[in-house]
Amino acid sequence: MMVNFQSSSSEISMAWNQFITDGISQNRAVAPEIMESWQRCYKAGVNPYGGKACRVLSLTELKNLLAKRKDIIDIAQPFMLKLYEFVRGSGFIVMLTDERGYIMENFGDEDIMEKAQELYFTKGADWTEESVGTNAIGTAVVLKKPMQISGAEHYCLKHQAWTCSASPIFNKRGEMIAILDMSGPLNGTHLHTLGMVVASVEAIMDQMELREKNRELMIANNRLVDIFKTMSEGVMIINEYGIIVRVNPVAEQIFGNPAHDLVGKGIKQILGRDAQGIEKSIGRQESFNDLEVMVDTADGRIHCLSSGVPIEDNGISTGAVIMVRPMEKVQKLVNRFSGAQAVFHFKDVIGKSQEKW
């Protein structure tokens, strides 16, 4: 259902003519945000009949901009395409700009895209108020909030056959990083157009947050992997069925087997009867420390100390992290820190014996 803007458009047109003629307007048909924008355009010396010469980035500048903003462009593109599918064939264009108002991406019907080039609806074009007068993108740059500007609300006459709806995109720090806009012929203005743009922006920001969380998880995981690989103890990660799913390099050395030979084996195959105590602790979701175990290795069975921590997901055990230290290494460590070294000299021997010649 299209909205009938005829009466309000006529009042706004009269207000625009009055403003352009004498620089003032008392017509209440014009929203305060629009009037303030007109005043900014007037002070900036924007030509109401043609606008200033719209600045367009050079190919090098555009290339640098697109490279710098690749992340937000990649996230926004699927949502822009979905938005465009809703308005395909209606003469509307979907655009993404940076926070300054420079167009970075656009989608639209081929015929309307050719026509839009005449109005600089092209990549690299500057759509600030200072460049092209009052418009949804430029005014959103200033006010940092969703805007819909239609018909005579545009400061420049050549844009008054259009309607545009724009909404800023913010990052998690609340900084405006881009603007999504949908522009088309004035007779296609719909009450829900701005709502569609705002909904798309919310979806884009949700996707940005999800991607950021995934990135943080990846960084955290990489750090954990680094710690896992550099630990001085042998470490095994088992699943809820007691199957080894990962081992660190030290565990490979202790067991005398590469990871691909150990992964997939049951903990019982490595620890034999001693695995029962570990399995009971893990089943009760309890940690255990310095449990003495005999470990099967490529060179035979060795005496070790083992500690473990269960892995839980919403209170459900999903496995455990098990650490193994050969007893020999533990004893060496104790001796090193306690200074227990048996060093004897002949003069230290105290005793008496009868001389025999």
Rank of each mutant, 00 (worst) to 15 (best):
G300T: 11
G242D: 05
S353K: 12
Y49M: 14
M2C: 05
G23H: 04
S8Q: 14
P78C: 09
F92A: 04
F255K: 06
V198A: 07
A140R: 01
Q207S: 15
S353L: 13
S8A: 15
G138K: 02
K332M: 08
G188D: 07
M205G: 04
I24F: 14
S165K: 03
N106S: 11
S58A: 07
R173T: 14
T139V: 01
G315N: 06
L262G: 03
E99F: 08
N171K: 08
D290W: 09
D71Q: 14
D261T: 10
M327F: 12
W16N: 01
A136C: 04
R215N: 13
K172C: 11
G272N: 09
L191M: 14
I267E: 00
S317N: 14
G272R: 07
K356C: 12
A125D: 03
S165N: 12
G91H: 07
M95N: 09
F288L: 02
I169R: 01
D299S: 13
G188Q: 10
G234K: 01
A251T: 10
K229W: 04
G124E: 03
V324M: 09
G315W: 05
Q276E: 13
G277N: 08
F288N: 08
N17V: 00
Q148Y: 07
A166P: 01
R336T: 15
L262S: 00
P168M: 00
P310S: 03
V330A: 14
F79C: 07
A251F: 00
A203H: 09
M113D: 05
V225K: 15
T139C: 02
V197H: 01
G89W: 05
A76L: 06
I302A: 05
P249R: 02
S338T: 15
G234F: 01
K265C: 08
V46R: 02
H303D: 13
I137A: 02
I302D: 06
F86G: 08
G101Q: 01
Q117F: 03
P249K: 00
L305V: 06
N248S: 08
D109H: 05
A116S: 11
I302G: 06
E105P: 00
Y102N: 04
G108D: 03
V250R: 06
R336V: 14
M196W: 12
S150D: 09
R284Y: 11
R284I: 03
N221D: 11
L157S: 14
I316D: 08
I237R: 03
V3K: 08
A340L: 13
E11M: 10
M113W: 03
L194P: 00
S25C: 14
Q331F: 11
A259K: 07
N64C: 05
I72V: 15
G45P: 04
G283M: 08
G264W: 02
V197F: 01
S13H: 08
I350L: 10
R40E: 09
K43Y: 10
E118W: 07
K123L: 08
